[in-house]
């Protein structure tokens, strides 16, 4: 049911890697290493500044993919991948957007499962891709049926 959405993308949204948000996120994953929040440690590091944890892109705004209707409940996060050109720097500006990469269905013991692949991308201010966060979302038959009503 999502085949027609493949290739659709959101408009790019400006995001900032906010200092307070990075510290709060690092704390929430129990990773309060000073490289993420202590300015002196950041300055002395090879990066010359603080960086963000690899799963931090969860917090960014990727905009809205026009026409993509996801069920409000019952989605299962099956797989997740983060790919980086380099770590993200605290304070830098990014342009983020989402894209429907793929959709397919597979027969399983739990019925016909749908697999929706969404890529969340982040670019620097020059348009260079810095990271891609790819999620595989599993949508079961019952949830899909509830949607088409």
């Amino acid at each position: 049911m999502y085949q027609d959405d493949i290739g659709k993308r959101s408009e790019k949204v400006k995001n900032v890697v906010e200092r307070g948000a990075v510290k709060k996120f690092a704390e929430a994953i129990g990773d309060l290493n000073p490289i993420y929040w202590d300015e002196e440690t950041g300055k002395r590091s090879r990066y010359g500044r603080n960086i963000a944890p690899p799963t931090f892109p969860r917090v960014f705004d990727y905009g809205v993919i026009e026409g993509l209707k996801l069920p409000p409940k019952g989605l299962i996060h099956g797989e997740q991948r983060f790919r980086y050109e380099r770590p993200l720097f605290v304070g830098e500006e990014l342009y983020c957007y989402a894209e429907v990469k793929d959709y397919y269905e597979k027969q399983s013991s739990m019925g016909q499962l749908g697999f929706l692949i969404i890529a969340n991308n982040g670019e620097d201010t020059n348009g260079n891709l810095l990271f891609t966060s790819t999620s595989t979302i599993i949508i079961n038959e019952a949830v899909r049926k509830a949607m088409s009503v």
Binding site: A28, D31, N33, P54, E79, F82, Y84, R86, P87
Partner: peptide, 25 residues
């Protein structure tokens, strides 16, 4: 859980960085 798991690599940022990180839940 995925966020927690990545902290095993945090002490080594002077030597490199996590370029690709994939998990299945």
């Amino acid at each position: 859980t995925m966020g927690n798991l990545a902290k095993l690599f945090t002490p080594y940022y002077e030597e490199g960085f996590v370029q690709d990180y994939f998990v299945r839940f």
